[in-house]
Design a protein around this nucleic acid. Sequence first.
DNA 1: GGAAGGGTTGTTTTT
DNA 2: CAACCCTTCC
Length: 743
Amino acid sequence: MSIYDTLNPPQREAVAQTEGPVLILAGAGSGKTRVLTHRIAYLMDEKGVNPWNILAITFTNKAAQEMRERVDKLVGFGSESIWVSTFHSACVRILRRHIDNLGYDTNFTIYDTDDQKSLMKDVCRKMNIDTKIYKERSLLAQISHAKDELLTPDDMEMKAAGDYNMKKVASVYREYQAALRKNNALDFDDLIVKTVELFEKCGAVLEYYQERFKYIMVDEYQDTNTAQFKFISLLAQRYQNLCVVGDDDQSIYKFRGANIGNILGFEHVFPDARVIRLEQNYRSTRNILNAANQVIANNTERKAKTLWTENEEGSKVHFRQFLNAYEEAEYVAGEIGKLKRNGLGNYRDCAILYRTNAQSRIFEEKFIAANIPYKLVGGVNFYARKEIKDLLCYLKTINNARDDLAVQRIINVPKRGIGATTLGRVQDYADNMGISLYEALRVAEEVPSIGRSLSKIDGFVTFIQMLKSKADVMTVEEILQEVIDSTGYVAELEAEDTEESRARIENIDELISKTVAYQEAMEEQNQSATLSGFLEEVALVADIDTVDPDQDYVLLMTLHSAKGLEFPKVFMVGMEDGIFPSHMTISYGDDGEMEEERRLCYVGITRAMKDLTLTCAQQRMIRGETQYNRVSRFVREIPRELVDLGHTIQEKKPKVEELIPTPAKYSKMKEILQGRNYKPREFKVTKANSLDYEVGDTVRHIKFGVGIVKEIVEGGRDYEVTVEFDKVGVKKMFASFAKLKKI
DNA sequence: GGAAGGGTTGTTTTT
DNA sequence: CAACCCTTCC
C-alpha cells in the first residue's frame, strides 16, 4: 500500500507524469493540492529528484506554507530545501542576490500601494502635471498594466504613436521608474518585471536558476499574467519540466493583468504538452455542485467540462431576501449564533463572502453586537496603518537611506520642528546635487538658509546614524524597540490616552510580536534574521496569510480572497444586480467582464462544502444614497429545484431579535462600535478565566519591563491590572493585551 | 508650524 | 457615508 493508492486514476497520472510540460485542468475541489503535494513526494521518493531542484509557485504564502507541511508529512525529509513560494517572494529572493546587475542595491525597498501613490504625487509635481486631469491612481493603473505586459516606457511611447494621452502617460511612466530607481525601490510589479529583465540581461544568472529548478510547478495558473508567464517559461526553457495547474473557470484576476490565454493556449505554446483533467469533486454536496455547474454553464469562453461528485445530495441552496442590509446581516449573525449554540458547528466553519470590502462593515457591527468572534480578511491592511507605517519607515530608513519617501514620512514624526519649508529647502539642495534626501540631511550645514532647523536635523541624523551603525549587531526587535523608546512614539500615544491611541499602541505591540515571530521563524529555518528580510516579509504578506486555523472565528472576506479556500458553511451576501455583478460590469462592461463576474460567482459557490446560503437586500445604502436592486442574475441562473426559498420574502425577524442581546438600534450599535475603538479586527479581548499572577507578584511586560502587580480589578470584559514598573512607574492596563508574564 | 473644519470625491476585485 | 485633500485660522 503506497501513498499513491488513495489517488483516483487521473490524479495518479498527473502525479506520475513528471517529465515534460503538463497541463492539469483541475476543477474546483478536485484535489489539486493533493496532486501537487503527492507529485512533489513522487519526484523525491520515486524519481530520486533532489528537493533542491524543485520550484513550486503558489498563489499565497499561506498556501506555500501548507504545501510544505503536507509534503513533509508525506516524505518526512528534505522538504525545507524545496522552493515553495509565491511569484513575488520567489522574485524578491532572486533579486536580493543579483539585482546589482541592474544597477540597484540589493537592500532595495518594496513599495506598497500607498508608497506608489506618494511617489507618483512627487513625480507629477515635478513634471507639472495637473493631477485633476491625470489622477495618480489612474496613471499608476496604466503603468501597472504596462508592466503586467512587460512593456517599458519606450514600448509604451512607441505604441502611443499619435495618441497624446498615452504619450503623456509614457513620459510619466519613465519619470516614475527613474524616481523608483533613485530611491532604490521597486513596486510590486517591478518584482516580476525586474527579475525577467535580469534573466534576459544576465545569461549566467538565468542559467544558474534553470539548472537549479529542473522541476517547476505552478498553482492557480489561470491567474498568471504575461510577465509571470515569461518568468516561468524562461526558467523552464532548458528542461521543459513544467507542470501547471489551473481552472479557466476560476480565472478572476483579469483586472490585474491575468492572461487567460496562458491557460487556454498552453498546448499551443507547448505542443507536446500532456493534458490531464480532474473532474471529480470531493468537496461539495451534489446540490451545491450542480448549482455551480448550472451557473458557469452560462459562460461561452471556456473549456467545456462538467464536475461530478459521489458526495451526498445535501441540503438545497438557501436563498433569503431581506428589506435592507441590516436585516440581512442580522439574519446571518443569527444563523451562525444558532449553529454554535446548538453545537452543530464552530465559528471557523463559516465564511461570509461579499463582492466589495465596503460590505463588511455591517457584518462587523452585527457580529460585535451578537458576540460572535470574527476575523476580517483584507480591507485596510495592518501594515497600512499610520502608526505601523511610521515605525516601518524608520526601519526602512535605517535599512536603505536612499528611500526618500520613508525619510520624508518620519523626519517630523514625532514632531521635531522640521516643517515643510525646511524640508523643501533640503529637498531642493538634494535635487541640485543629485544626492538622496538623507544624504542632504547629513550635510545640512551646506544647505542655504536652513537657520535654526539645523540643530533639529542634526539630532535626527545622529539618531539614524547611531542605529545604522548598530543595525548589524542588534536584532530587529531591539532596533524597533530602540526607535520606539528614543522617539517617544508610544509614550506620546499613552499621554493621549484615548480609545484610538490605545488601539494604536495595541497595534504597535503586535508589530513587536511580529518581529519576534520573524526572528524565531528564521532561527527555525537556520537562516539569519535581517532587517531587510523582515521588511520584505512585511511587504509581501497578504492578509489571508495571517488566518490561524486553530482560532475559532468566522471569516469575513471578498470573493477574491476566498479563492483556494473551503468552508462547511458559506454565506454569499449582497447577491444583487448592481452589487454582484457590479454596477460597473452591468453598465459599462462587455461580455468578457460579465463572464469574469460569473466565474467569481462560481468560485464563491464552490467554496461551500455542506451548506450554502445566498442573501440579498431590497434596499441598500451605497455611498450615501439608497439603492433598490434586483436579485442578482446569478441567483436566477440556479435552477429553481436546487433552491430553498425559506418562508418567502421578509420574514419579520421575531427570533432574530432574541438572539441579539443588545437593543437593535443602529445608533446604539454605532456607539458601541466606536466606543470599542476604531476598527476592531479580531476578537482578541477575550477575558481569561483566571490570571496566572496575582497582587504582589513580579511580572514582565514586553515594553515596560519588570514590575510588581499592585491591583487587579475585575471588569466586565477584562481584568484591569495596575502594575508598578521599575523603570516607568505605575501603569494601568487590560490583562488581555498587556500579556504580562509572571517571573 | 500645526490643528480644525469644510468641501470634494469615490470603489469593484489585490500581490 | 466616509475618507481625503485643502484651506483657514490660531
